Amino acid sequence: MRRSRRRTRTLTVFREGGRLVAVVPERISAREQNELIPPLVQRFLRREAKRGLPQAPDELNRRALELYRRYLRPLTGEDPPGFSVTWSSRQQHRWGSCSAWSGEIRLSARLQTMPSWVSDYVLLHELAHLHQPNHSAEFHRLLSGYPDRDRAKAYLLGYQHGAGMGESETPDAEDDYS
């Protein structure tokens, strides 16, 4: 549990490094905390189970390997380079990021509330960066085989619009958001 000075009324729960974290207003009483957090955690776990998203780092890495083998290997003809995937609660301006030189992929924890085909798209996008660090024609060719690509991009765009996030991370025609 974390207390936040910036949070004044609402509570939230998310996963960070495989653990659940509850963020509560700094001034909430222990009684309120004990009443409000357990139902919030239960609701979060129910939603998480419905989505079927990989939550632990091992599961996330297995999912990434599965996506790589299914969609990228046929186009690259190569086994995947070394990589590791983690959820990040610190990524508030990007859906994902990739350090191609180290193979580190970080996905925004916000994706955990979205359908799996959306998080799969962002994960696949970052995996493609292991081969193409930019958003070149070759990069887009690598993503072309994912059947939910356009639907996932539209979902992320709608989410950003609904959340009033502006266009800073909008996947545009060049797919330039990670």
Rank of each mutant, 00 (worst) to 15 (best):
M1F: 02
S4W: 01
L11I: 08
T12C: 13
R15F: 00
P25A: 04
A30N: 07
E32V: 01
N34R: 15
L36S: 13
P39W: 00
V41W: 02
Q42Y: 03
R43S: 14
R43N: 08
L45T: 12
R46I: 04
R51C: 04
A56V: 02
P57Q: 06
L60R: 10
R62S: 04
L65A: 12
L67I: 10
Y68N: 08
R69G: 11
R73A: 15
R73V: 05
P74G: 10
P74L: 02
P80M: 03
F83L: 04
Q91Y: 08
Q91I: 11
C98D: 10
E104L: 10
L107H: 10
L107W: 03
S108Y: 02
D120Y: 06
Y121P: 13
L123F: 07
L123Q: 12
L127M: 14
L130V: 07
N134T: 12
N134Q: 13
H135Q: 08
S136F: 04
E138T: 10
F139A: 04
H140Q: 11
L142W: 04
L142Y: 13
L143A: 06
L143R: 12
Y146Q: 06
D148N: 15
A152L: 01
A154Q: 07
Y155S: 07
A163M: 15
E174S: 14
Y177L: 04
